[in-house]
Design a protein around this nucleic acid. Structure first.
Length: 579
RNA sequence: GCCGACGUAGCUCAGUCGGUAGAGCAGCUGUUUCGUAAACAGCAGGUCGCCAGUUCGAUCCUGGCCGUCGGCUCCA
């Protein structure tokens, strides 16, 4: 374990040093280039440059890489030079490195360190590899725009991404991995498996159309979700897709969420296409008096919401403008908040486990501008932390990243390329109960304010399905495979037998198809294989005479002859275990 | 929205240094009745993302718009 950590740290050091070599190369080729920052990141490194009058092209990367190799060949030492802040400011001001000067001025210490490699000088905490000759295998990958310090009003710099490993073969493996990941891209698989499409030109960006197989997949998951919610004491509600602006004025969304909302005006009445389900659920809660005995009230809805997202951020199913959340709002007494959060966390992680996801957990605490009392925030934040600890879930704290109305737990799922996407989230809310003047009658007969929990356990069906497709590479486990079995008759005289088998499987609620075409068996197998259908039943003279089937699995190939009942048993077992 | 790359047949892609385009797969028709990852032949298929401009002539050049991809920012 410790050994792993050391390796990771060494890799980070190597990558960071490689980013210095990159910066040195860029400055040699483009003397006017000003430096931004150049850290090591999870899968490599990047460096940001401001190069007046030059926009880098992919061909430039080749040149830069060559220059880097020259620097490596020279085997220049990374020399640490401690200096006072004043000297550093002077040094970088002379070099016109305005971004570095900005950084130095923000360092609280009196002294800073800079690193010198040949003629190249960079502000850096270090440490580094000894000399450029110690650099490993590296490759520059892409160029992208990035705002200085990530702030939109700042200048846009040119960012070069690259990666580095100690050994050439590790680099090769990594690049192969990237290529493999592209094959699992849900946008590609969505087309190949005919699951969904986004008709950008004809119907709008960020709006998903589920084709029959995709719809089947989604409905299977939704059915599962509904059952799981019923088990856990949720009640189902259904709310409209539009509501008068009044509702959003009360909730506050028409103010702080305005730029994400779609507005409609008819008969001089303003309506909003709902960006969230909470106000609707609140109306239902508020339609009657609630006793403390009835709490918590848990309203669940597969609620479709529409949010305007800036054009540059849309991404297949993973970021869209219309999506369906597996959304619930829990109204509880403060006393029961803790137990409720534990139950929700349990629920969310059970779902993630069921689908075999990789994820990261973040706890976001109180931001600067927020509503609610210190006491409430402390109570809710503690409840979240306790719940995470009780469940033994590893998490990172994101200080000040909570929503203004309460702290939250976010779970990020990873796509094929390892990019994190927010899925499940559990948010405590002190704001809406105030704004809608919610209450319940307490034991002593007094009116009290309930606490609300907003939570999704998958996130949204779209994002979840996108991540799911990538997670399984399109080869869905039997229990959610849109088509579970395909029957492949060898010649058309076997069609009758195939249809009989199909009916028997349908009677056992197996999702089954027959490929009736006058095609060779090899072709039918190939296509079923490409479609990643879990089981193929090949039937010809032999099988028909014996009343059996020849089973082929998508992973294991030909697994031999089997009676139908025997095969069905095997399917049922596999479905039950969700394997 | 911003920076960069890109948009050619249902899909994957070639091509035209300005004279209205081609391949493979898919589709359709015909022949083949065939045992564990692609039978053969023929046919059809495109206002070259949209709108302007330049030009005798634009898919190609210029501008705007729509959209995709990689990032930034934001989020389920």
């Amino acid at each position: 374990m410790r050994y792993d950590i050391i390796i990771i740290m060494e890799l980070e050091l190597l990558r960071h040093s490689t980013s210095h070599i990159l910066a040195a190369a860029v400055q040699q080729l483009y003397p006017s280039a000003k430096l931004g920052i150049g850290p090591a990141i999870e899968e490599g490194f990047y460096y940001d440059f401001d190069i007046p009058g030059t926009t880098l092209t992919p061909e430039d990367l080749v040149k830069i890489e060559e220059k880097m190799r020259e620097i490596v060949k020279k085997d220049e030492k990374f020399i640490k030079v401690p200096m006072s802040k004043e000297d550093a400011v002077k040094l970088f001001t002379e070099k016109g490195e305005k971004y570095k000067v900005e950084l130095i001025k923000e360092i609280p210490d009196a002294n800073v360190t800079v690193y010198r490699t040949g003629d190249f000088i960079d502000l850096c905490r270090g440490p580094h590899i000894d000399s450029t000759g110690k650099a490993g295998a590296f490759k520059l990958l892409t160029i992208a725009g990035a705002y200085w310090r990530g702030v939109e009003t700042n200048p846009m710099l040119q960012r070069i991404y690259g990666t580095a490993f100690e050994k050439e073969e590790d680099l090769k493996t990594h690049i192969l991995k990237l290529e493999e990941a592209l094959k699992r891209d849900h946008r590609k698989l969505g087309r190949e498996l005919d699951l969904f499409n986004i008709y950008h030109e004809e119907a709008g960006a960020g709006l998903v159309y589920y084709h029959p197989r995709g719809a089947r997949l989604r409905l299977l998951i939704e059915d599962f979700l509904r059952k799981e919610h019923l088990k856990r004491g949720y009640e189902f509600v259904i709310t409209p897709h539009i509501a008068r602006i009044n509702l959003w004025n009360t909730s506050g969304h028409s103010g702080y969420y305005r730029e994400n909302m779609y507005f409609l005006e008819i008969d001089k009445q303003e309506y909003v296409l709902k960006p969230m389900n909470c106000p609707g659920h609140i109306l239902i809660y508020n339609s009657k008096l609630h006793s403390y005995r009835d709490l918590p009230v848990r309203f669940f809805e597969l609620g479709t919401v529409y949010r305007y997202e800036r054009s540059g951020v849309l991404h297949g199913l993973l970021r869209v403008r219309g999506f369906t959340q597996d959304d619930a709002h829990i109204f509880t007494t403060p006393e029961k908040l803790q137990d409720e959060i534990i139950a929700v966390i349990d629920f969310a992680f059970e779902m993630l486990k069921t689908f075999g996801f990789d994820y990261e957990v973040y706890l976001s605490t109180r931001p600067e501008n927020s509503v609610g009392s210190d006491e409430n925030w402390a109570h809710a934040t503690d409840a979240l932390i306790n719940a995470l600890q009780k469940k033994g879930i590893k998490y990172a704290t994101d200080p000040g990243a909570g929503v203004f109305y309460g702290p939250k737990i976010d779970v990020k799922m990873k796509d094929a390329l390892g990019r994190p996407w927010q899925g499940p989230t559990i948010q405590v809310d002190f704001n809406l109960p105030e704004r809608f003047d919610l209450h319940y009658i307490a034991e002593d007969g007094s009116k009290k304010r309930p606490v609300m929990i907003h939570r999704v356990v998958l996130g949204s069906m779209e994002r979840f399905l996108g991540a799911l497709i990538e997670n399984y590479g399109g080869a869905f486990p039997l229990w959610i495979a849109p088509t579970q079995v395909i029957i492949l008759p060898i010649a058309d005289r076997h069609l009758g037998y195939a249809e009989k088998l199909k009916q028997k499987l349908l009677d056992s609620e197996i999702r089954v198809e027959v490929d009736p075409r006058r095609e060779k068996i090899n072709l039918k197998i190939r296509e079923a294989q490409v479609q990643k259908i879990p089981y193929m039943l090949i039937v010809g003279d032999k099988e028909e005479a014996a009343g059996k089937v020849a089973v082929r699995s998508r992973h294991g190939g030909d697994i031999g002859e089997s009676g139908l009942e025997e095969f069905l048993d095997k399917l049922r077992k596999e479905i039950d275990t969700k394997a």
